[in-house]
Amino acid sequence: MKPPPFDYHCPETLDEALALLAEHGEGAKVLAGGQSLVPMLNLRALHPAVLIDINRLPGLDHVSLEDGRLRIGALARHRAVLESAAVREASPLMAEAYPYVSHGPIRNRGTLCGNLCHNDPASEMPAVVLASDAEMVLQSASGTRSVGAGDFFTGMLSTAARADELLVEVRMPQAPAGQGAGFHEVSPRKGDFAYVAAGATMTLDGGTCSGVRIVCAGVGDGPHRARAAEDALEGAAPGEDAFRQAAEAATEGLDPGEDFHADADYRRDLVCSLTRRALADAASRCH
């Protein structure tokens, strides 16, 4: 299990990196933390002609909260995000969910942006950023554009990023004051990708749930927003029954896919119970 041969570039500036991406296009792969890319190379599931290693690009490792906006750069490692005070302040959901993402040594290298670009359907963070109205800032030699999370995740292991684009930053609005978040996951083992994960955020507005967001991972070919469940709860009084009903709504019409680890019935059951738990946690953490 050794990688196939490839050309390797390690640009020192963003412009250089973007020029290389423009030059090599589809044949190139960006190498960030390598925690998804290198296993795939070792398995020879990919044969890129060129690797463009972005690890030496300056100024992309930020995790910051400015003017009510959380900004996480392409080289912010999982560990930096996990330990960031800015994240705890700006996104209780991300803070709740991060401990479920892999293990220490993987987090030391892996990046949030790489994780989002990889878009594994069982990955936690795509669901988190989907719930958080995040914007993906994509830059190429020909310009910069911003894509909302809802449009970014386009299917199994694929995103709206073009081959010549780099995801340079994720931006998220700071969660509204008083927001509570809950995140629950069942994975084969601690630190593994999820069978199913469910995240929820809400604020309690005059005793009723408002701004409810419910997202799931592991239920299809990418992160999933359970809009019917959100609608069922929006404006309702919090409580076990309400959460249960919302959780059931989250499973309605859901075709979560299956593999030998987890069949569709099992995934639906998990969506239901984990959503309920996430909602209960979210409500109890509103302040």
Binding site: Y8, C10, L31, G34, Q35, V38, P39, N42, D53, N55, R79, H103, G104, P105, I106, N108, R109
Partner: peptide, 21 residues
Amino acid sequence: GACTVLVDGESVRSCLMLAVQ
């Protein structure tokens, strides 16, 4: 995790890092 080493003080999987890096 058998291949774990420290790079600049942090634990990493040496099977998931290129030597040139």
